[in-house]
Amino acid sequence: MLNYMNIIFLETYKIIFLLVPVLVAIAMIVWLDRRIWAFVQKRRGPNVVGPFGLLQSLADALKYLFKEIIIPSTSNKIIFILAPIITMTLALISWAVIPFSETYVLADINVGILYLFAVSSLGVYGIIMGGWASNSKYPFLGAIRSAAQMVSYEVSIGVIIINVLLCVGSLNLSDIVIAQKNVWFVIPLFPMFVIFFISALAETNRPPFDLPEAEAELVAGYQTEYSGMMYAMFWLGEYANILLMCAMGSILFLGGWLSPINIYPFTVIPGAIWLIFKILFLFILFALVKATVPRYRYDQLMKLGWKIFLPLSLLWVVFTSSYLVYFNKLPII
């Protein structure tokens, strides 16, 4: 019994040690996003609360916490309340498998990449449930749009993951990072990295693919009826997903915790710092895209997903596998 208690306490400690930094990072990333967006548009952005406005997200969270939660009387109450909880939970549990260094990983499971993919594909339920349970036009339209969009782009992300897995020969995330010791996959698989980046934008409902919450057409999409802390949970879940997609991109293509050059001064810096730098790099790209690119039309979005990205990534699977087989470089474990 004491043994079990020990294990439970140790695991809880590890989980808290992982989740608290992730939540703080989400708060900081929201600030960074708004700040970059403002700088591109020659504004100042949030700069009042705390040094450089760093505490802005904290102030926002406090504000949301004290706002009243309004549940529409015609809504389906249980599902309405469940939706933001599911979004938030799914966004946080996927961090369990992210390897921050060779030793620091909460759950080093055999099928890590499949777990990440499965959890990110479950993320659509929070949105559908929220949109349906609100029992109102705009949230429903937003939810339907979002579901169709996420399902379509998941397919191309899955095929891109197959590309990487062909080069690795394992589904374990640590193995994927170690396989990039000689060359990061961003170099041999560069077109796939570009498609992954754009698909990740679509998967997380970021501009230019933010049709589910296109404010000019759908008020705020699936979040229209939400208020107070429940709205904030949707918001946090969305940013946690964005951060997760950045982490996934840096593990699959940018070498995870590996240092860019394997020589003395770079190898001293711990792997977690490198991973954080890579995530930040990808996130800044996300923010710059948000600030510069106009929104897609819905039919163009679907055309891009099904008629361009899917055939292209499938073709690249054929190309990669034939290259690996012909030159006898297929990784066999």
């Binding site: 499971i109 499949l114 499965a118 479950l122 659509v124 559908i128 349906w132 339907i144 169709a148």
Partner: peptide
């Protein structure tokens, strides 16, 4: 059988059930 479990999650929950839900809602 972690591979089967994850594939079940991806295929049935991530894709098939979404389409079910779509049809039922529509």
């Amino acid at each position: 059988a972690e591979f089967l479990g994850m594939i079940m999650l991806i295929v049935y929950v991530g894709a098939v059930a979404v389409l079910f839900l779509f049809v039922v809602m529509m």
